[in-house]
Write a protein that binds this DNA or RNA. Structure first.
Length: 663
RNA sequence: GCCGGCGUAGCUCAGGGGUAGAGCAACUGAUUCGUAAUCAGUAGGUCCGGAGUUCAAAUCUCCGCGCCGGCACCA
């Protein structure tokens, strides 16, 4: 930190309205607020000085832009409230559970958490008492005080209190950084700040939400702490709105819709593997047919490779050493049928279900000699892979142990990498656009600590990906050090109903596997060269992508994806034969149809097919049967449209075309 | 894998040492009805599994398993 300029005797403060106020150096933002008006002084939560959020009582020693932050400044107010709320939680917990150590308590999206070290477990039943204590502390209106301590004294102080985690944090703070300690009444915590002037400013629109274990410093080798999550808002109304939003989001949960719409199920004998039901598999088949067409038109060739390969094969590819703990292994032996005998002797060689398709694709590439003229080869496979994911990681369709990727590997020359990257980005944009997916976050994952290949190669590869993203006009975050060991990657993330981010598409540059598996082509010069391998997936996996689509559409699929596209419902049994004939014609036109001849009132049928999220309902009664018409009703609308049956079939057929085949 | 919670009918949930409950769904019957719930009746259970305590366990204890929420991991 650079030393501040020698304090001038006067500071000139420019307020947001452009007015300038002059004070003696050392004036505080709180004082300025009071001078502007008592209302502002009361509402003041903190201040922004030269863009930085600061405490109201921090002395200002130089001139600059100053803005008083109040509850009306949503982003700042929420940040301050949530940060103070984390402190409030820690203060309450230490009051109620002596001996509990505090660690860290940051603000997160929609709330905050605090990690505690305590031998006895907390239970959600403790929340009520903790919240009550927090409210009491708000009522007590404890003033905030900031002190700057000497580093060694601070470490000694927290050690003496038995707060070894805090002491460790202080010891790790960069030299030269102020060790600031905030007091809220008698309670104090090491903190960078800033904080509200007193606990009353936090308000009471908060709620503790979840309890979880979390490793100290995010490292599973460290002790596990107890994390308490909470949410906090400016007022009760916002809190209520947030809780309502969460409730609504839960209704979009793909696991819930999957059951309600009879799309798929899981059971414990095959945990992490999906049982796709007929209606769910319709969705799968549409996705597969669609992406196959998109890839065909983009110059891909499709292959199919083995599920089960010998361990020797995986040793060569590097998976045996790098990925084995995620693999399912199978002994290549005939199991014993003898009573009491061990199932297998363990003498046979081990095989493994493939966790990735890439090494198998390399085998196909290596059949025969490839010329530079053959490249690029875009080899795709709807490859079914198995990964032995940790039990705690499994999550509906989003994280499974058996998955099918819309995988492909592009073997190309160095000089083709940029073109191929751009080509993929175009394909990606077209596909996600077809599904109306716009909320995509792009990440460029760069070289990890442990990696193969020279820095030269990495420089080139990372720059190449960044250039492609720029050329495509995409803004992206850099995920420092999160690349694969063999190369950097682009990650395309989608967000689920409750805000969790999942990687779907991916695009990776690989210079290592071709080397490892000795992949070559013959160049123009007659010499052997290494191709570059681009690993890429558009959906990622059918499972995860389907899960995200279910949540994206909340089960109300566009016509081309809907498991049941049309329901034909009769008003009286007099229309049964007409309805059956109509359904037959719809089916002949390639549509997925249900015929509802049940002896129920039409209101009942309308309700049922609406709840089933069937996009189009054709109601037929005596009148329609007599006139050869249908009454067409669309999901979500009470409107009806009477059409000649022929016209209705033509129109629905047209609307049901997949986006790549739409007229 | 780790921490916390949960596990009762197809679904949503109540019950908490003494004969297992409701609503919806299912089934049967009646009703033939014009755009989001017609009425009546019937059937449905290894209360996740195993062991223990007890005269008696869905209920209490222990051990497993699964699921949910996080953490770690992660294409």
């Amino acid at each position: 930190m650079s030393a501040p300029a020698a304090p001038a005797s006067e500071v000139r403060l420019t307020l947001p309205d452009g007015s300038v106020r002059t004070y003696g150096a050392g004036v505080t933002a709180g004082r300025v607020a009071a001078d502007i008006g008592p209302g502002l002084a009361k509402a003041a939560m903190a201040a922004r000085f030269e863009g930085t959020l600061i405490d109201l009582d921090r002395p200002l020693t130089r001139s600059g832009r100053l803005a008083i932050v109040t509850r009306k400044d949503e982003a700042d107010a929420l940040e301050l409230i949530r940060h103070d709320c984390a402190h409030l939680l820690a203060q309450a917990v230490q009051a109620l559970f002596p001996g509990t150590q505090v660690t860290i308590g940051p603000v997160i999206e929609d709330g905050f958490y605090y990690d505690f070290a305590r031998n006895e477990p907390f239970s959600v039943e403790d929340f009520e008492a903790i919240e009550a204590k927090m409210r009491a502390l708000v009522d007590a209106d404890l003033p905030t005080r900031r002190e700057v301590w000497d580093r060694d004294a601070a470490i000694a102080h927290f050690e003496k209190l038995g707060e070894s985690y805090k002491a460790e944090i202080i010891a790790d703070l960069p030299a030269g950084e102020d060790i600031s300690v905030y007091f809220h009444g008698d309670w104090h915590d090491l903190c960078r700040g800033p904080h509200l002037p007193s606990t009353k400013h936090i308000g009471k629109a908060f709620k503790l939400t979840k309890l979880a274990g979390a490793y100290w410093r995010g490292d599973a080798r460290n002790a596990q702490l107890q994390r308490i999550y909470g949410t906090a808002w400016r007022e009760e109304k916002e809190l209520a709105a947030y809780l309502h939003r969460i409730e609504e989001a839960e209704k979009r949960d793909h696991r819930r819709i999957g059951r309600e719409m009879d799309l798929f199920h899981f059971q414990e004998e095959a945990q992490g593997s999906v049982f796709w039901h007929p209606k769910g598999y319709v969705l799968w088949r549409q996705l597969e047919a669609y992406i196959r067409r998109r890839q065909d038109e983009d110059g891909y060739v499709e292959v199919k490779t083995p599920q089960l390969l010998a361990s020797k094969f995986w040793e060569q590819s590097g998976h045996w050493s790098k990925f084995r703990e995620n693999m399912f292994v199978v002994p290549d032996e005939i199991p014993s049928t003898e009573e009491g005998a061990p199932l297998v002797t363990g003498q046979g060689q081990m095989m493994a279900l493939k966790p990735m398709n890439c090494p198998a694709h390399v085998q196909i590439f290596k059949q025969g000699i490839k010329s530079y003229r053959d490249l690029p080869i875009r080899m795709s496979e709807f490859g079914c892979c198995h990964r032995n994911e940790a039990h705690g990681a499994l999550h509906g369709l989003m994280r499974v142990r058996q998955m099918t990727q819309d995988d492909a590997h592009i073997f190309c020359r160095d000089d083709q990498v940029t073109d191929e990257t751009l080509r993929f980005l175009r394909l990606f944009a077209r596909v996600y656009g077809d599904f109306g997916l716009t909320d995509i976050s792009y990440r460029l994952a760069t070289r990890p600590e442990v990696r193969a290949g020279s820095d030269d190669v990495w420089d080139r590869a990372e720059a190449s990906l960044a250039r492609a993203l720029d050329a495509a006009g995409l803004s992206y975050a850099i995920a420092e050090g999160e690349g694969a060991f063999y190369g950097p990657k682009l990650e395309f993330h989608l967000t689920d109903a409750i805000g969790r981010s999942w990687q779907c598409g991916t695009f990776q540059l690989d210079y290592v596997l071709p080397e490892r598996l000795d992949v070559t082509y013959v160049g123009e010069d007659g010499q052997r060269h290494r191709p570059v391998m681009l690993h890429r997936a558009v959906f990622g996996t059918f499972e995860r992508f389907a899960g995200l689509l279910i949540e994206h559409f909340a089960g109300r699929f566009p016509l081309w994806l809907a498991p049941v596209q049309v329901a034909v419902a009769t008003i009286t049994s007099d229309a049964d034969s007409y309805a059956q004939a109509l359904s037959g014609r719809l089916r002949a036109a390639g549509l997925r149809v249900e015929t509802d001849l049940r002896n129920e009132k039409i209101t009942y049928k309308v309700r049922e097919h609406s709840l089933a999220k069937t996009p189009i309902l054709l109601v037929v009664g005596r009148k329609e049967a007599a006139e050869g018409t249908v009454s067409l009703r669309r999901l979500g609308s009470p409107d009806q449209e009477v059409l000649a049956s022929e016209a209705a079939i033509a129109q629905i057929t047209r609307e049901a075309a997949p986006p790549d085949r739409a007229a």
